[in-house]
Amino acid sequence: MAAPRILVLTGAGISADSGVDTFRTQGGLWERHDWREVATPEGFAADPGKVHGFYNGRRAALPEVRPNAAHRALADLERRLEKDGGRLTLVTQNVDDLHQRAGSREVLPIHGSLDRASCTACGAVHEWRQDLSVETPCPGCGKAGGMQPYVVWFGEMPRHLDEAEAALDEADLFVSIGTSGSVYPAAGLVAAARAGGTRCLELNLEPSENAGLFDDTRYGKAAQIVPEWAEELTW
Rank of each mutant, 00 (worst) to 15 (best):
Y55A: 05
D47W: 06
L108D: 13
S176Q: 06
A144M: 14
P67F: 10
A69W: 00
G196Y: 02
A12F: 04
T217K: 14
D162E: 15
G188C: 07
L7E: 05
E202W: 06
T22L: 05
G220Y: 05
A73R: 10
L114N: 07
D97N: 10
L189P: 15
A144G: 06
T234E: 13
G181R: 01
G112P: 13
V95G: 01
D96A: 01
A16W: 14
A222Y: 06
G220P: 06
R24W: 10
H126N: 06
A117I: 02
G220N: 10
A16H: 13
V38Q: 09
W30F: 05
G142A: 12
G57W: 11
E31D: 15
P109N: 01
T10W: 06
D131I: 00
T22K: 11
A223H: 10
D47A: 03
G212L: 03
V65Q: 15
M1T: 10
R80V: 00
P207C: 13
I177M: 01
R58F: 09
E42S: 02
W35T: 01
S18L: 10
L161A: 04
G53Q: 08
A73Y: 09
W153F: 09
G85K: 05
A73P: 00
T25I: 05
D34G: 02
S180Q: 08
R87V: 05
A61C: 09
P109I: 11
W35I: 10
D97C: 06
N56W: 07
L9P: 02
V8L: 14
R59G: 03
S104C: 10
D169F: 05
D162P: 05
L233R: 14
I225S: 03
E170Q: 04
A117C: 02
D216N: 01
R79D: 03
F154T: 04
R116V: 00
S180V: 11
Y219I: 02
D47L: 08
T136K: 14
W229C: 09
C200D: 06
G197K: 12
G57I: 09
V226Y: 03
R5W: 09
N210F: 07
K143I: 08
R87Q: 15
R80E: 14
E209S: 10
S182V: 15
G142L: 08
L74A: 02
S113E: 15
H126F: 12
V190S: 00
C119D: 01
D216M: 15
T25Y: 02
W229H: 01
C119H: 06
G178A: 03
R199N: 02
F44I: 01
G85H: 07
I14G: 08
S118W: 12
Y184P: 00
A2E: 08
E64F: 07
L7G: 00
G112R: 08
D21M: 15
E135P: 01
V107K: 11
A60Y: 02
A45C: 04
G86F: 06
